[in-house]
């Protein structure tokens, strides 16, 4: 139920006895050259569609945090920029950056392959989730002038989790990595917490994967929040906008639509877009869990 694809394949290991059954398929995929093997790591890949690599840079911008993630929680099994693998392997989590170019056969093939090979597909960043700036492309550019149709990956495959924003913030990627690990490998309590944490990002994905509504921009703040009588003028949308397209006028967001790049950050950040008391009331527990996970030595 929580991750459609995953459940079909191995429904049992997630619940009672995670260790033995889950580690098996992982071990198969674990690269041999790992010098200090850590049991139970998840496998993560970065799949590059039509994007600027900014999302990957953002992942790397966790600095030493990235090493903590790679040392303890995840093996980077595929990443054209940072790892040697050339072909998409089987993996637990695929972080997909960029939109899909419909005229680029390889892209279409790879995104489908990603869906087949990954238990969890994460749309990393605005382009993968909502099309972002590639929504404005209409072809005619060098050196592939015929490349003109770019769609969010949700138009082509089912996506499990959205991380909106351009670029998505390093800490948000970190939080998803850690909670994904807890969801797949943690104890029952950790799984419940991780499930609750990821639920809104999964809701965004299921919303966005419907081809008819896979559009995000400042308009969402208008249509889904203000038009619905929900805005109370906190200003979170304005502070989240990476291009400063939103200013607060008379206590309400004013969206310069010409400046909007359609990254989806404002709507995802809005407390009246989604708000889960179950999760946010536990903010200290979750933040502590993430900090604890990122600081395993406790230094």
């Amino acid at each position: 139920m929580i991750f459609g694809k995953k459940e079909k394949k191995e429904p049992a290991p997630k619940s009672q006895e995670p260790k033995a059954p889950v580690s098996k398929p992982i071990a198969k995929e674990e690269p041999k050259k790992e010098e200090r093997p850590v049991a139970n790591k998840i496998t993560v890949g970065h799949v590059h569609m039509s994007g600027c690599t900014g999302c990957l840079v953002s992942l790397a911008d966790n600095y030493e945090g990235l090493f903590t993630i790679l040392d303890n929680y995840a093996d980077l099994v595929y990443c054209l920029t940072l790892a040697d693998a050339r072909h998409i392997p089987k993996m637990d989590v695929a972080l997909v950056e960029g939109s899909v170019c419909l005229q680029d056969e390889l892209s279409v093939e790879e995104i489908k392959e990603t869906r087949e090979k990954a238990a969890v597909v994460v749309a990393l960043g605005g382009c993968a989730a909502y099309g972002n700036i590639t929504r404005f492309c209409r072809g005619g550019q060098w050196n592939q002038p015929q490349h003109e149709g770019f769609v969010p990956i949700g138009d082509v495959i089912d996506v499990d989790v959205y991380i909106p924003g351009c670029a998505p913030c390093p800490q948000q990627i970190r939080n998803v990595c850690v909670t994904a690990y807890l969801l797949l490998k943690g104890n029952a309590e950790q799984q419940a917490l991780a499930k609750a944490y990821l639920a809104p990002l999964m809701a965004l994905a299921s919303e966005g994967s419907k081809a008819t509504s896979s559009e995000a921009c400042g308009c969402d703040i208008m249509t889904k929040v203000i038009n619905q009588g929900l805005c109370m003028g906190c200003g979170t949308c304005a502070t989240s906008c990476p291009v400063f397209a939103i200013t607060m006028e008379e206590g309400k967001p004013n969206i310069q639509r010409d400046m909007c790049i359609k990254c989806g950050a404002c709507y995802a950040a809005c407390p009246r877009a989604f708000f889960s008391f179950d999760v946010v009331n536990q903010y200290e527990t979750i933040i502590d869990a993430i900090h604890g996970a990122m600081n395993p030595g406790g230094n």
């Binding site: 953002s58 911008d61 991380i163 909106p164 924003g165 351009c166 670029a167 998505p168 913030c169 390093p170 800490q171 948000q172 939080n175 944490y197 809104p200 990002l201 109370m232 906190c234 200003g235 979170t236 502070t239 989240s240 906008c241 990476p242 990254c263 950050a265 404002c266 995802a268 950040a269 809005c270 407390p271 708000f275 999760v279 946010v280 903010y283 979750i286 933040i287």
Partner: peptide, 23 residues
């Protein structure tokens, strides 16, 4: 902040979308 703004703040700390290095 008012209660709603503090809710927004805590949500932003948990889901720091577009708030790099702030949370």
């Amino acid at each position: 902040g008012t209660p709603c703004q503090i809710q927004a703040l805590r949500k932003a700390q948990l889901y720091p979308i577009g708030l790099r290095d702030v949370c």
